[in-house]
């Protein structure tokens, strides 16, 4: 099963109905993508498939054949969203953070607060009450 993972062509050997989440974490060792619920409710496993955020716990491997998958590791360590999540304390326990950042990537520049809330409606955070996350995204997307 061939697909593009963080810009590189990769072949996966996991069974075709494996969850993309497990393939990323176990076959490719990309553990930045987290599992919080296993049913598409918490968004901790959010990755981009062909640029669109999806819950990788709900995507069977077979469905990313020939697609492009981007995970938090594909962002490197110098992305404005990462910096502002740090500066604004958008990350507390950090388990939702990679998913939050991946979901926020889809926002256009200079989003309104409502835009941000809607974009993050599929990502649960239990630590922050979301407010610091809004501040982080607002700053990162206004640079």
């Amino acid at each position: 099963m061939r697909f593009t993972l963080n810009g590189e062509t990769r072949d996966a050997s996991s069974p075709p109905m494996s969850r993309l989440l497990d393939v990323l974490r176990e076959e490719f060792g990309l553990t930045g993508t987290k599992e919080g619920c296993g049913e598409g409710e918490c968004g901790a496993c959010t990755v981009l498939v062909d640029g669109a955020p999806v819950c990788s716990c709900l995507v069977p491997l077979v469905q990313v054949e020939a697609a492009s998958v981007q995970t938090i590791e594909g962002l490197g360590d110098d992305h404005p969203l990462q910096h502002e999540f740090m500066n604004e304390v958008g990350a507390q326990c950090g388990i939702c953070t990679p998913g939050m950042i991946m979901a926020a990537l889809s926002l256009d520049e200079h989003p309104t607060l409502d835009d941000i809330k809607v974009a993050l409606a599929g990502n649960l955070c239990r630590c922050t009450g979301y407010a610091a996350i809004y501040r982080a995204i607002m700053k990162a997307k206004s640079q």
Binding site: A52, P53, C55, L58, A103, V118, L120, G122
Partner: peptide, 12 residues
């Protein structure tokens, strides 16, 4: 459609 799940679910 806007009220189904979050964006991740709406995309799939």
């Amino acid at each position: 459609s806007r009220l189904v799940g979050g964006p991740q679910i709406q995309n799939r």
